[in-house]
Design a protein around this nucleic acid. Structure first.
Lengths: 149, 149
DNA sequence: CGAATTGTTGACTTAGTCAATCAAGATAGT
DNA sequence: ACTATCTTGATTGACTAAGTCAACAATTCG
C-alpha cells in the first residue's frame, strides 16, 4: 500500500535529473538540497539507479549525475519496480514463486489482488517524467500569476 | 504498496465468518485451521476487529465469533482501512497532518499519489464479502466439474 | 454444582527492515 | 599537484511486524 521513503527519494531524484536534461551533470549536493533528501542516503540511491542503468555519473569537479533515458519515455512505474519490486499488494501475486501461500491458490482474494495490481500499473506506467516536469512548469506559472494579482 | 500479513489474516478471518453467517458462532480454532492463520495471532486480530465493531464474540462451549454486519454491505476497504489506516501510497496524502513533507505541498508527485489512492479505493470499496463468498462458490463448482469430466 | 470449553487480556520476544551515516578511496578537471 | 566530486562497503540505530505465552473470565451442559 505504501511506497518506501527510499523509493520516493529515488523518484524525486530522477525527477530532478529530468528537469535538467541536456544541461550537463547535476551534482548530488544540488539534488539533495532541492529535493530535500539526506545527502548520504542519496548517494546510496543514485548508485543503485546507476546499477540499473537509469543514470550515468561523471566524476571530477564538473561531475554529477545525468539521466540516460529520455524523460518522455521513462515512467514512474519503471523506477518503482526497480527499487521496490513488483507492484503487487500481496506476496502471492508478486512472482511465480511457486505459491508459498498455504492456501495453494485457493484464495478468494486473488482476483481482487490482481485487479489492484492492474490499477496500480495503469497509473504508474502511464506517468512519464516529462509529464511531471511539464505539470510542475504549469503549476509554477499559475503560482506566479497568483502573486501578481 | 503492500498489505501487511496481519491485514490479510484479518480479511481472511472476516471472509470465513461471512461464509458461515446465520449458522451461529464460529470457533477461533476453526477459522485458524481453514484459513491457515497462527491461532495465537488470530486471537489478537479478532479482538481488534471486535473493538472496531466488525464482529461479536460469545464465550463458552458453544462460543465463537459472529459477523455483525451483512456480508452484502461490508467491503474489503472498510477492513483494510481499520487495520492499516488510510489507503494512501504515501504519508503526504494520508491525513491533513499539516504536511511534514519538507517540500510544502510543492511536490510534483502529489496529483499522481491522489490518482493512486482513488484507484485503490475504487477496487477495495466496491468489493463486498458477499461478492467474495459468491465467487468462491462458483469456483468450487467449476472445480467439481473438472474432476467429474 | 463443577468440569470442560471457549474467548480475554496484556505483556513479551524475536526477527527483519528502513533510514541514515561514516570513512577511506578512486577519478577527473585545472 | 590540488581540489571537487563520485564510489563503495560496512555499520548503526530505531522501529515495526509477526508471532508467542500464560493466567484469567465467562458460558454451557451433564
Amino acid at each position: 500500500m505504501s511506497i518506501s521513503q527510499k523509493c520516493q527519494y529515488a523518484l524525486r531524484a530522477t525527477f530532478e535529473l529530468a528537469k535538467h536534461v541536456g544541461e550537463g551533470p547535476v551534482r548530488i549536493a544540488d539534488i539533495a538540497k532541492t529535493q530535500a533528501i539526506p545527502i548520504r542516503f542519496l548517494e546510496v540511491i543514485l548508485n543503485q539507479l546507476k546499477q540499473g542503468g537509469f543514470v550515468e555519473s561523471r566524476r571530477g569537479s564538473t561531475g554529477g549525475y545525468v539521466l540516460t533515458h529520455s524523460p518522455a519515455t521513462l515512467t514512474v512505474g519503471e523506477i518503482i519496480r526497480f527499487i521496490e519490486g513488483p507492484l503487487s499488494p500481496v506476496q502471492c501475486i508478486a512472482g511465480s514463486t511457486g505459491d508459498q501461500c498455504p492456501l495453494h491458490g485457493d484464495c478468494a482474494f486473488l482476483p481482487m489482488w490482481e485487479k489492484v495490481k492492474d490499477a496500480l500499473s495503469d497509473v504508474y506506467d502511464s506517468t512519464t517524467f516529462e509529464d511531471l516536469v511539464e505539470q510542475e512548469r504549469v503549476r509554477r506559472k499559475e503560482h506566479v500569476l497568483d502573486y501578481s494579482i
